[in-house]
């Protein structure tokens, strides 16, 4: 698969070749693909979502079967499956021993963690990180006031709060996560802007509307129905919107 520019940019100045890596919250396996392309010795892609695990295996793990003409861009392009382990697990209890990895990516992860989960996950990531390990945290600044996509996120959060007792999305400002991970012992190294504006495409909007509808269905009858209807209405009204900023932070544990 093609490594997204966001991932390529976030990893460009990180030493990945030959390292043991962890993608925390694998999603579609985007950071895993980037880590493997950059020559990681091993990548643990951890996700608690079975569909995401399957998607990552299919998109990234099967890559090995594709031929590579050996120009050096795609190091180890034919052994992705050998270097990849997709683990279905809760990030608050990562099934790896202490000091097990040298590079950790949290690419688009923190926004799906409420503050309590974020704290627990940060503890766990710090535990599995070896001394001197690198941490890459890529996420979104809070959506600017007046953005249409913000209404959809509000509905998604309302449905999630009502049915699950926690928000679906929390957009932490870059400065917040910078200080937060520093509090967990990570030394801040740099910040860069990955996307500005952030292109929320029709497929992103549809995916978020689907999430809102799923959560709303679990919620109390009338309110749930109203939220689901609001999500669908916003999906068609918004279409797509480019707004806000995605940032990339890099940290390092002291040796």
């Amino acid at each position: 698969m093609d490594v997204p520019r966001t991932v390529a940019t976030a990893l460009a100045d990180r030493p990945v070749a030959g390292k043991r890596c962890l993608e925390a919250g694998a999603g579609a396996g985007n950071a895993t693909a980037g880590l493997l392309a950059n020559g990681a010795a091993r990548v643990y892609a951890v996700t608690n979502d079975r569909d995401h695990a399957r998607t990552t295996r299919r998109r990234v793990g099967d890559e090995g079967n594709r031929s590579s003409d050996g120009d050096g861009n795609d190091e180890g392009g034919d052994d992705h499956a050998d270097r990849l382990a997709v683990l279905e697990a809760d990030l608050r209890a990562v099934p790896l021993p202490d000091d097990a990895v040298d590079v950790i990516t949290a690419h688009g992860l923190c926004n799906v963690l409420d503050p309590a989960s974020l704290s627990a996950v940060a503890e766990e990531l710090s535990r599995v990180a070896a001394p001197g390990a690198h941490l890459v945290v890529d996420d979104y600044d809070p959506v600017p006031d007046g953005a249409a996509i913000g209404e959809l996120f509000a509905v998604e959060n309302a449905a999630s709060e009502l049915s699950r007792g926690r928000p679906a999305l929390t957009f932490y400002p870059a400065a917040f996560l910078r200080r937060f991970f520093a509090g967990h012992g990570w030394e801040f190294e740099r910040e860069r802007t990955l996307l500005e504006p952030v292109p929320w495409t029709e497929s992103h909007v549809a995916a978020h509307a689907d999430q809102a509808v799923d959560a709303a269905k679990e919620g109390p009858g009338e309110t749930g129905d109203a939220l689901a209807a609001a999500a669908r209405r916003l999906e068609s009204e918004i279409g797509s919107e480019s707004v806000g900023r995605m940032y990339g932070l890099a940290f390092r544990l002291p040796d």
């Binding site: 997204p4 999603g27 690419h107 799906v112 495409t201 497929s203 995916a207």
Partner: peptide, 15 residues
């Protein structure tokens, strides 16, 4: 943006 317009992978919440 054009990558996602083009993408066969559904349900991507992020970039």
């Amino acid at each position: 943006r054009v990558r996602h317009d083009d993408s066969p992978v559904p349900e991507q919440l992020h970039h």
